[in-house]
C-alpha cells in the first residue's frame, strides 16, 4: 500500500513499511550512509543516516535506513539536531580510522579538520557489516562474520582459522566502503588473487575473477556486477576529488 510522507517539505509516496531512506532517495534528498546497500537488508550500524521524524505529534531521531515509513510522517534530514549528531558520528569515525579517504572526505565536507577524540591504533574497519551481510545474503556462504564485542569486535572467520566455505569471489573487497579488505596475490599461487584483512584468511578465486565464465549462479553474478560497477564509480569519484 502506498502512503504519502513528507521529506524536507517534498511529498513522496512510497510503500508502507519500507525504510524512509527510500522516500528520501525518491525525493532526491541526499542522506549520507556507510552501512546501507540496496541489495541487502538494512542493518543500522553506522548511524550516519539519522533523520528527525515527526509522527503522531512526536519528534524523534531515527536511523532512516531501517525505520519503516507510515502515512502522515514528516521527515527532516537537515535540522540542527541531525547535523549535530552526524558531526559527532563522523568525528568518532575519524578518530577510529583517520587514514580512510572516504571518511576524511566526509569530514571535510562537514568542516571537521581533526577529531576531538583520542586516535586509536590504525584501524580501517568501521564494522559496518557490509562484507558480512553480502557474504551471507547474496553470496550465500557466510564465510566471514563478526566476532567478540565492544572494542574487540572484528570481522573474522569461525575459530579464526582459514575458512572452508569461502569461494574467493572477492565481493567483500568491492563492497567495503573504507577499502580495508585488500585483494593481494596469493602466496602459493601468485597468479591467483585473494582477500586480505589483517589476519583474516580467505581463499583465492579459482577462476581468477573471470566473472563472465564463472560457474556460479546468475543472480549472484548480476548482483556482484552491480556492486563492482558501483564500487568503481565511487572510487573514481573519491580519487578525482583528491
Amino acid at each position: 500500500m502506498k502512503v504519502p510522507i513528507i521529506v524536507d517539505g517534498l511529498r513522496v509516496e512510497i510503500d508502507q513499511g519500507t525504510p524512509i531512506i527510500n522516500a528520501a532517495r525518491k525525493a532526491g534528498v541526499f542522506i549520507p550512509t556507510l552501512c546501507y546497500h540496496e541489495a541487502l537488508k538494512p542493518y543500522g550500524s553506522c548511524r550516519l543516516c539519522m533523520v528527525e521524524v515527526v509522527h503522531d505529534k512526536q519528534r524523534r531521531l531515527v536511523t532512516s535506513c531501517n525505520f519503516p515509513a507510515e502515512g502522515g510522517m514528516e521527515v527532516f534530514t537537515d535540522t540542527s539536531r541531525v547535523r549535530q549528531i552526524r558531526r559527532m558520528i563522523v568525528e568518532l569515525l575519524l578518530a577510529r580510522c583517520p587514514e580512510v579517504l572516504m571518511i576524511r572526505t566526509m569530514a571535510k565536507q562537514m568542516g571537521i579538520e581533526s577529531s576531538m577524540f583520542k586516535k586509536r591504533e590504525a584501524n580501517e574497519c568501521i564494522l559496518c557489516g557490509l562484507c558480512v551481510r553480502f557474504c551471507e545474503e547474496v553470496v550465500g556462504v557466510s564465510a566471514i562474520g563478526l566476532a567478540n564485542r565492544g572494542i574487540d569486535r572484528e570481522v573474522a572467520t569461525p575459530f579464526k582459522v582459514a575458512s572452508d566455505v569461502c569461494i574467493g569471489c572477492g565481493a567483500c573487497t568491492y563492497i567495503c566502503p573504507t577499502g580495508c579488505i585488500e585483494m593481494v596475490p596469493d602466496e602459493k599461487t601468485p597468479r591467483l588473487r585473494r582477500m586480505k584483512m589483517g589476519n583474516l584468511t580467505l581463499v583465492p578465486c579459482t577462476n581468477n575473477y573471470q566473472c563472465e565464465s564463472c560457474p556460479r549462479e546468475e543472480n549472484f553474478l548480476a548482483e556482484m556486477k552491480n556492486v563492482i560497477t558501483e564500487f568503481r564509480s565511487t572510487y573514481r569519484r573519491f580519487t578525482e576529488k583528491k
Binding site: 551471507e136 557466510s142 562474520g145 563478526l146 566476532a147 575459530f159
Partner: peptide, 12 residues
C-alpha cells in the same frame, strides 16, 4: 545455521 553466526554468539 552458519558457523559464523554461532561463532559470533559464542564470542559475544
Amino acid at each position: 545455521l552458519s558457523l559464523t553466526r554461532i561463532f559470533d554468539i559464542v564470542t559475544f
